[in-house]
Design a protein around this nucleic acid. Structure first.
Length: 723
DNA sequence: CGACCGGCAGTTTTT
DNA sequence: CTGCCGGTCG
């Protein structure tokens, strides 16, 4: 068979990685170096050239999107369907293992997945049930504690502590886990931990999979946490081959448990592994790469990598200094319009920021300019309230012991089961170590409730039982339709009088169509409903957005990872914003911010624009910041600086109380403009931010680089204009 | 049981 | 300055 097409168009290093023999491998893949391509071609190579069955290859990624892309490209390359091949996310594959071996994993067959929102709700109830003060022991922190422990592979019984605060969190962990186990609920971290324990504690299961997966490929390895890497090692056993692909310079998820050190650990644990560096970049201009290389060079303990390109030098990086965030936004919009006038597509433009709050001002300016935009990272389909309600009904119908689902819908729509009744049910459930359903059943049967409450609870239990009968052996979409109508959920939202309710009804209808078009795989003996529920939990779905529209792309620097755009704006390049205030202090966290900067810069293909504002309003407070240190790390010859050139018109003025058209005139007489750089005898250099008054009393606000922001009387200040 | 008010927190995100 | 959550009132 002619397999040369698997190597065509690849560079030498890429070929080496794709056509490597039976061995372990670390592929250090720089940004834009064709990482996915190498992974996909390697899989195809293993199958076509080395004659492995598709079923003896396992490829794991972090996001569904990456997994779907990989699967699609492998199929295209092989020219055949690989639906049943094990390509998926860590969570997806762990789930698959647990379904197939639920008994060995100690789970009920119909176990359900708890998403973060469900988890938080359950934690709140657990904390309440333990009679702990919710202010002192926030559910969020408890969740953080529990997930962290699970990521480290630790069960409550493994944890010993003398710290009284931790003791309480440990107690919550214990109680929460018991609640999950009673209800057959598995949270995201639990999926990974259980799957790991399943392999670790069951020799036959472990050996079966070790025998099966001769080649394991891990994408974005720098993002793995402890349990994920442990899971990979367990599967690899002594005989199988592991290829990991990653980039220590793009490790930006340390704060959620990712361990870059796993890269070093891999080299230690797989000492015969070859390291292949992919440094040729196919994305950006050499200017952008040089700048990014220089920035990241300030980090220590790198595995080391220098990106280069055969491409053109391109334009210099533009650095824009605005006097505030509104003006920054206006500049960006003007630049986008110019891009558009020159024939550029809006969807080729990305606006990146460090935190979501920054998007607002940008949005307002885009709106004002009538430029369509799309924000990444909104609520996704299965995260929506009404959809979660409906899914909870489906879950409860398929497993009555599911307390999370029970709690969610027991009084939605309201059917007279109030907090008072529910707390009685919870108390009994707790005392009897059983589920809400069982407790409620018992209370109804044994007349432990007052008449009205008893009737209400009884009719709810009957409703679920009846829905179960009606749904039996029905197609998925029929079941969904039945549940929506039978539960009164649809009617509830239809009756609601708001535009929000309208979208909610639409989303419920959309859910029915989603079940219609859902294609169950029939894997692991799951019913279509069970598969759909898992799908809803593991793949929250795309955000609903008109993706086809030509729109400017707005997103955080984090969500930009893996994407590329011809024109990229990195906004808010200020100390305190980026790097974030929260990450200052610890050198390690600062280096992660720098990697984030590196990720942002390397998203740009043709043109990179960085901007910062002298003053930025955050939480209603005006703050002054110096330009980000990352800017100073870029060689100045790669940068063209732009400052406010024209006087600012209305929208800028509106924000200042002092700012009248009269003072505007008077001010312009002084010869200073907003954003203008000035020199003061004792305060040094600064930027003009604001001004007030007319004539001899007129004052001017200057943000000095070293001395901070000050109001000065123009007549006395002796300011020298710079530039 | 729902509507309103007040307090308070407030990076980054996927599964 | 916002948005969310929890508490209280009608």
């Amino acid at each position: 068979m002619d397999v040369s097409y698997l190597l065509d168009g690849l560079n030498e290093r890429q070929r080496a990685a794709v056509s490597a023999g039976e061995q372990d491998m670390l592929v250090l893949a720089g940004a834009g170096s064709g990482k996915t391509r190498v992974l996909v071609h390697r899989i195809a190579w293993l199958i076509q050239v080395m004659n492995y069955s598709p079923f003896s290859v396992l490829a794991v990624t972090f996001t569904n999107k990456a997994a779907a892309e990989m699967r699609g490209r492998v199929e295209k390359l092989l020219g055949r369907d690989v639906q049943r091949m094990w390509i998926g996310t860590f969570h997806g594959l762990a789930h698959r293992l647990l379904r197939a071996h639920y008994q060995d994993a100690g789970l009920p067959q119909n176990f359900q997945i708890l998403d973060s929102d469900d988890q938080l709700r359950l934690l709140k109830r657990t904390i309440k049930a333990l009679n702990l003060d919710e202010k002192q022991w926030p559910a969020k922190q408890a969740g953080w504690y529990i997930n962290g422990k699970k990521d480290d592979g630790l069960r409550p019984q493994h944890i010993e502590t003398w710290d009284p605060a931790e003791k309480t969190f440990l107690q919550i962990y214990q109680a929460y886990q018991e609640a999950c186990d009673r209800s057959g609920l598995v949270d995201f971290a639990e999926l990974l931990l259980r799957a790991h324990e399943l392999l670790r504690d069951n020799k036959h299961v472990r050996e079966h999979y070790q025998k099966r997966f001769r080649h394991i490929l891990v994408d974005e390895f720098q993002d793995t946490n402890q349990i994920q890497y442990a899971w990979v090692r367990l599967l690899a056993g002594a005989d199988n081959h592991v290829a990991i692909v990653g980039d220590d310079d793009q490790s930006i998820y340390g704060w959620r448990g990712a361990q870059v050190e796993n890269l070093q650990h891999f080299l230690r644990d797989f000492p015969r592994a070859d390291t292949i560096r992919l440094e040729q970049n196919y994305r950006s201009t050499s200017t952008i790469l040089k700048a990014a290389n220089q920035v990241i060079a300030n980090n220590s303990d790198r595995l080391g990598k220098d990106l280069w390109t055969e491409g053109t030098e391109g334009e210099p990086i533009t650095l824009y200094s605005a006097f505030n965030e509104q003006e920054e936004a206006r500049y960006i919009v003007a630049q986008i319009k110019q891009w558009q006038d020159q024939g550029g597509a809006l969807s080729d433009v990305a606006l990146l920021y460090r935190n979501n709050a920054q998007s607002r001002v940008l949005e307002e300016s885009l709106l004002y300019a009538s430029l369509p935009y799309r924000i990444y990272g909104g609520l996704r389909f299965f995260d929506r309230q009404e959809v979660k309600d409906a899914v909870a009904y489906l879950r409860l119908v398929s497993n009555r012991q599911d307390d999370a689902a029970f709690e969610r819908v027991v009084n939605t729509p309201s059917r007279g089961i109030g907090e008072r009744t529910l707390s009685l049910v919870r108390e009994l459930a707790r005392n009897e170590q059983t589920t809400m359903w069982n407790a409620a059943r018992k209370m109804v049967n044994e007349s432990m409730l007052s008449g009205r409450a008893r009737n209400a609870v009884a009719s709810f239990l009957d409703l679920i039982a009846q829905l179960e009968v009606e749904c039996a052996d029905q197609p998925l979409s029929k079941q969904t339709d039945r549940v929506l109508k039978g539960s009164g959920l649809l009617a509830m939202y239809q009756a609601e009088q708001s535009d929000k309710a309208e979208t909610r009804v639409e989303n419920l209808q959309e859910l029915v169509s989603a079940t219609e078009s859902f294609m169950p795989s029939g894997e692991e003996d799951m019913t279509p409903l069970a598969e759909f529920l898992a799908h809803a939990a593991l793949e929250a779905g795309d955000e609903q957005a008109d993706a086809y529209q030509d729109a400017v792309q707005l997103m955080t620097l984090h969500s930009a990872k893996g994407l590329e755009f011809p024109l990229v704006f990195m906004t808010g390049m200020e100390e305190g914003t980026f790097p974030s205030q929260m990450s200052s202090g610890e050198p390690g966290r600062l280096e992660e911010e720098r990697r984030l900067c590196y990720v942002g810069m390397t998203r740009a293909m043709e043109k990179l624009v960085m901007s910062y504002a002298e003053s930025r309003r955050l939480y209603g407070q005006e703050n002054f910041h110096r330009p980000s240190r990352f800017i100073a790390e870029i060689p100045s010859e790669l940068i063209t600086e732009v400052r406010v050139q024209t006087r600012i018109e209305q929208p800028a003025a509106r924000r200042s109380r002092f700012h009248t058209s009269a003072s505007h005139e008077a001010f312009s007489e002084t010869g200073f403009q907003l954003g203008q750089r000035v020199l003061h005898q004792s305060f040094g250099e600064g930027t003009v931010l604001n001004y007030e008054g007319t004539g001899p009393q007129s004052r001017i606000q200057v943000n000095f680089d070293d001395a901070g922001s000050k109001w000065l009387v123009v007549a006395y200040a002796k300011l020298t204009p710079l530039r």
